[in-house]
Amino acid sequence: MALLEVEGLTMEFGGLRAVDSVDFQVHEGEILSIIGPNGAGKTTVFNVLTGIYHPTRGEIVFRGQRLNDLKPHHITALGIARTFQNIRLFREMSVWENVVVGAHTRLKSGFFSSIFKGPATRREERAARERAYKHLEFVGLKGLETTKARQLPYGAQRRLEIARALAAEPRLLLLDEPAAGMNAGETEELMSLIRKLKEQNITVLLIEHDMRMVMDISERIVVLDHGRKIAEGTPAEVRRHEAVIAAYLGASARAGG
């Protein structure tokens, strides 16, 4: 059974249909990319999957559980975490605190134990900080733990978003254009990081515009255009797909070729 099943997903904003009857499945342990021209509805799919929007129609099932009406924090607790296209870090917090906030659903201390910190709470805090440091080392931010998030360079901020998402201990990680604004070297590092995630048994759903990266790293690709799914398959299949070529280069390119 698939880890995530999306069936007939439709998202309307007033009269605008941003996502139109989209079906796809994400299998355990794979790297699946969603590509498509700007405005194709990719980020809207992410926002629906994470509960920021509730779908107009369709079904979203994650590990046998329907997500349609759940709130974002419930979905995170079930094991889906994400990063944002336009970086959304907690800018005034330190790097390690950003990561510990990511672990919010995995920590127990409640209201009174937050105030009157008993030994159990203190142990939990210490362990959480240690795990945060490990996540930071994993994404290559070792030594920057106590820096404020806003003081990090751009590429490091993107990696911090990944570390923060990892702290939620997700089964499925949604990465929204993680390579945006990165140079070739940084993109290369990012790709090896995503491969390491796969080794850790984390399933990755990726939105990306960098075609070299998408073709290199994805096992399967779903192509959206104007909110509809126009193709699905391996990188090689998608690359040859007529509708995809038309969507990216315009219909005239197909006529000319």
């Binding site: 974002p72 959304r88 870090l89 510990v100 906030v101 920590l107 201390s109 409640g110 937050s114 910190k117």
Partner: peptide
């Protein structure tokens, strides 16, 4: 504390906090 960090996270970015 865990709760205090969550409050500050809400101040910093409410959408990211709920996610």
């Amino acid at each position: 504390s865990r709760m205090g960090r969550a409050l500050i996270a809400i101040r910093e970015d409410e959408v990211a906090a709920q996610t």
